[in-house]
Structures are given as C-alpha cells and as structure tokens.
C-alpha cells in the first residue's frame, strides 16, 4: 500500500526543503533568539546577584552601626561605673580622713581638758588650802583668845588637814 511506502520524489524534496529550512533557521534564526534570551537571563541573574550583594552590604552597614552604638553604650556604662567608683573612693577617703582628724582633735581636746582639769584642781586645792589656813587662822585667833577647849580643837583640825593631804597625794 502506498501509505507506508515512502515515495522517492517526496523524500528528495523533503530532504531538500528541510535541509534549507534547517540551514536558514540555524544560521539566522534560532541562535539569534536563544542567545539573546540567554543574554537577558544572564543579565537578570547578574542584577539579582548585585542586588543581593548591595542588600548584604546595607545589612552589614546597619549591623556595623548597631555594633558601634553598642560599643559606645558599653563605654559610657564603663565610664559611669568608673566615675561612681572613684566618687565612692573619694568619699570613703574623705570620711576616713575626717574620722582621723576628728579623732586627733578629740584626743587633743581630751589632753587639754585633762591638763585644764589638773590645773583647775591644783588651783582649787591651793585656794582651799589658803582658805583653810585663813579659816584656821581666824578660828585659832578667836578660840585661842576665848575658848577653854582650844587645845582639843586644834589637835582635831591638824589631824583632818593631814588626813586630807594624804588623800590628795
């Protein structure tokens, strides 16, 4: 049957026509199209890569910024901390100094008070002694003039004075 037997003439024509079509399209048709599309695809890929790079850089920039701020904040905190510490130290030092000073002043005052007291006591003692002597003189003078029991009184006075003298020494 002729349907399944290839006709020679048609074979020749088909080979010729397909050959020409193939030649023309392979030379001026398809490579032009596929290359252009490829070029565009390359360009798009390139652009995407570039955009990604830029984005990356931008992200790095902001993270860098953040790091910088973070660092500044840390430094600030450190400085504040240091300042607080030195302030505390100064106050502490001042306190210690003040305490020492106060102690010294107190000690000095104590010494002086003691000395004053000593001298005051000494004065009082002298005064009392003088007064006693004066009183004794007066009493002696009067009693010696009038009192019959003057010898007894004189003896008792002498005893008292001597005993108080002993107490003070």
């Amino acid at each position: 049957m002729s349907l399944i037997t290839p006709d020679f003439g048609l074979l020749v024509w088909m080979t010729l026509i397909f050959g020409i079509v193939f030649f023309v399209l392979a030379k001026w048709g398809f490579p032009m199209i596929t290359d252009s599309v490829q070029k565009r695809a390359d360009r798009i890929n390139e652009s995407i890569a570039k955009a990604r790079e830029a984005e990356e850089r931008l992200r790095n920039l902001s993270s860098e910024q953040e790091a910088l701020i973070e660092k500044a904040r840390k430094e600030q905190a450190a400085i504040l901390k240091e300042a607080a510490a030195s302030r505390d130290a100064i106050i502490e030092q001042a306190k210690v100094q003040a305490r020492d000073e106060a102690a010294k002043i107190t000690e000095q005052a104590m010494t002086r008070i003691a000395a004053e007291k000593e001298s005051a006591l000494r004065d009082v003692r002298t005064e009392v002694a003088m007064l006693s002597v004066a009183v004794a003189e007066k009493v002696l003078r009067k009693d010696l003039d009038s009192d019959p029991g003057r010898d007894e009184l004189l003896g008792r006075l002498v005893d008292e004075i001597s005993s108080s003298e002993e107490l003070n020494s």
Binding site: V21, L25, G29, F30, M32, I33, V37, R40, D42, R43
Partner: peptide, 18 residues
C-alpha cells in the same frame, strides 16, 4: 515557518534583548 522565525530573530537584532 522561516518567515515567523526570521521575523522573531529580527526583533532581537533591532533591540537589546538584555
């Protein structure tokens, strides 16, 4: 076919496909 493909190819020749 040749006409269609060559016309298509001509567009790429005249334009910057990128």
């Amino acid at each position: 076919l040749v006409l269609i493909i060559l016309l298509t190819a001509r567009w790429y020749r005249k334009h910057d496909a990128a």
